[in-house]
Structures are given as structure tokens and as C-alpha cells.
Amino acid sequence: MQDGVPTGLAATIGDVEPRDLFEILVRENADMVRAYLLCHVRDPATVEDLLQEAFLTAWRILDRYDRQLPFGPWVRGIAAKLLLNHRRKMGRSKVWFCDEESMHVMEEAFCKLQTLKGDTFDEKLDHLRVCLEKLNAVQRDAIRMHYEHGLQCKEIATRTGTGFEAVKKHLQRGRAALLRCMEARAVASGAPS
């Protein structure tokens, strides 16, 4: 590494400044990595910290990156390792949803997301917007109240006059329906089912 720049990258990109190239990669992938971390971590500040750390690690080890492969899954892999390390630091053994086997399933879901039509992450989210409109009103309201307005299940139950468990079911079934809808759109985009 010379002058803080990964040597492998400097040797392969000719006249383009490595930092400039890396900035493009960060801009292209930051939203996706953030979404990946939001799947696992509730605290937004921790998500920001992990995202920062993932890209800084990527910069440090950029000479290990195989440029024949897409950058997104590679930096996501770094974020996954940071998540696992973070879990170990936390010293909690009951974090079942953050083991390697589970994260493999998550990685598959993100790979499928990449096959949806659209160049940017926001364009991929357009599919989710379309699928949201297709939900039944009860599920859509529950999801919007929870995710858009930040209401907890108890508050949603109070506002809608339904039970706490019913709200959780609406959210679960809504999410399941959204996933089915997005998978169907991925298949329609030509992704393997």
C-alpha cells in the first residue's frame, strides 16, 4: 500500500484516481449495504457505524477484491463479518438470527433483489412500493404505521382498535405477502425461481 492507497487498485485503474473510483462504488452500494444492516440491527446509529466500518475495511483490503465479480456482494460479505464480530463483542449467545447459516439465507434474498429490474437501489425499492399497493388495506395500514410512522404494535393496536397479537400477525403476513410479490417480480425479470 502506497500513500494510503491499496496497491492492487492503483495498479489496475490507470489514470483514474483510486479514491474517485472508490467513491463511485460507495455511492452505488451504500444504500444497499445500509438496507442489509437494517435487516439485522435495530439501532440506526449502530447501522451507520457498521456501514462506515464496512466501507473502510473494503478500502483497506481492496487489493483482495476480484474485479471480475460484482462489488456489492463483496462489501456485503464484509458487512456480514462485521455483524458477526459485533455479536461476539456483545457477548450474547442467544442471537440466533445472526448466525452464519441464517445470514446465508439473507444473502440469497439480496442476490435475488439484485435481479429485479432497475439500476439503482431506489429503483429496486420501486418494486417494493408497487407490492405495498397490492397488500390488503389492513396489512398495508399496519405496515405503514409501523415502518413509516414508527408506531409500535401496542400503539397500532390502540389506534386501530384491534389486539396486539392481531397487529403482529398483520405485520407478519404483510411482510410475507410483500416477499412473495417481490419474488414474483424477480422471476418476471428473468431471475431463477
Partner: peptide
């Protein structure tokens, strides 16, 4: 079971990303 939870979490993360742009 783990797979189902991760699939739920995937949509959970997407929704969080969608509404916090």
C-alpha cells in the same frame, strides 16, 4: 424456521430502508 425468520427480516430491512430515505 430460521429461513422463514430471515425472509421476514429481509422485508423488514427493505421497509426500514424505504421509509428512512
Amino acid at each position: 424456521q430460521k429461513s422463514e425468520v430471515m425472509r421476514q427480516r429481509f422485508v423488514h430491512g427493505m421497509l426500514r430502508a424505504l421509509y428512512s430515505q
